[in-house]
């Protein structure tokens, strides 16, 4: 136990010594504070704790659209852009050097000459990197939790899903960086491979999603996209049967299946963080579409929703976890077997 605490303490000291750690903390705090600074008032909304005022009859307190707007700021901007990409990228850059520096000649020898198993050393060091994202996301979660509590007057504990989800999403790419770091002992190569891998899995996921939309969801709704004009048009029964793009989708799905679903993991926050029904008309559009309307616009929305829900949470998390376990096991095996 003393050994575990020692390695974690060392990880914490290393993080505190890194400038990028403080940049990440500052960015998370800034985003959280800006969100907290937005207030809904009876005649509109204020920004920066009342320094700027925007008058509105729609976005205001006591109006369901005001609450919808405040929640959408979190789900569509903070979640998509900061949690889904900015925070992970900064964390990847900050922690990429942990294993290459740890395995450097003259440094690793002291740790390996102690009565600590190499496997234990490897995994506790890896956990130390998780601390980086956990601390940063905890700060953001607390600020968003307080913001929603104060502005919408209810305490939404599901906001704290941000911490494990963001940490897990980060760990999926970081495991690749660790493997490359252990093999090459180079921070630069690890970073390049890690970020390239992230881009690659993102493209795979977007391709898979787009192909599902066009091969399944839209066909079921008897629609197709005209790729020349970009317009969505309707299909009759015969045309829908003739369309056969499912083979390509199955190919892309089988290729992407073993890879981590980083994008889907961060998007799963939309389901995990549950908000109360604001009662806004804007929130109801999709629901109405599936019940009554049948024109192209409503069908498209229904197809998109079906696409979003094409994978279960279990599939997303377990397949990603499986990938991480395989990569980490390989990295650990190399770390344990290598001569230093």
């Amino acid at each position: 136990m003393i050994q575990v605490v020692t390695i974690l303490m060392d990880s914490l000291r290393m993080l505190l010594a890194k400038r990028l750690f403080w940049v990440s903390i500052f960015m998370s705090a800034l985003i959280g504070l800006v969100y907290l600074s937005i207030n809904l008032e009876p005649d509109g909304m204020t920004l920066l704790f009342g320094m700027e005022k925007f008058e509105s009859d729609v976005i205001c307190s006591g109006n369901p659209e005001g609450e919808w707007f405040y929640i959408t700021l979190f789900t569509s901007y903070i979640n998509r852009f900061w949690i889904g990409s900015g925070a992970i990228l900064l964390a990847l850059i900050s922690t990429v050097s942990v294993f290459p520096e740890f395995t450097r000649a003259g440094t690793i020898e002291i740790s390996l000459s102690k009565p600590v198993s190499r496997t234990g050393l490897f995994f506790v060091k890896y956990l130390g990197c998780m601390l980086f994202v956990a601390l940063q996301s905890l700060l953001l979660a607390v600020l968003v939790f307080v913001a929603i509590g104060l502005r919408l007057e209810y305490w939404n504990w599901s906001i704290f899903w941000i911490v494990p989800v963001l940490t897990f999403a980060f760990s999926l790419i970081h495991s690749v960086q660790v493997l490359v770091g252990v093999v090459t002992k180079s921070s630069l190569v690890s970073l390049l491979v890690g970020v390239s891998f992230w881009v690659m899995v993102w493209m795979l996921q977007v391709s898979e999603q787009t192909m599902y939309l066009n091969s399944y969801a839209m066909v079921e709704e008897k629609m197709k996209v005209d790729w020349k004009s970009g317009e969505v048009t309707g299909l009759d029964e015969k045309q829908a049967e003739d369309l056969d793009a499912q083979g390509y989708y199955k190919l892309v799905k089988s290729v992407s299946a073993p890879f981590p679903k980083v994008r889907d993991v961060t998007l799963s926050l939309d389901q995990l963080v549950s908000f109360r029904d604001s009662g806004s008309i804007l929130e109801q559009i999709d629901l109405l579409a599936s019940v009554e309307k049948n024109d192209v616009q409503y069908k498209s929305q229904r197809a998109e929703r079906r696409t979003r829900e094409r994978h279960t949470m279990k599939y997303i998390y377990l397949s990603s976890l499986g990938f991480e376990c395989v990569v980490l096991s390989l990295a650990c095996f190399i770390f344990v077997r290598r001569d230093y």
Partner: peptide, 22 residues
Amino acid sequence: PEHVQFPEYLTGRQVIRYSAGL
């Protein structure tokens, strides 16, 4: 070790504590 390199973010005292902890 030969050519020992301790993490630069540690103080001398912390290096000794790190070794003791391990």
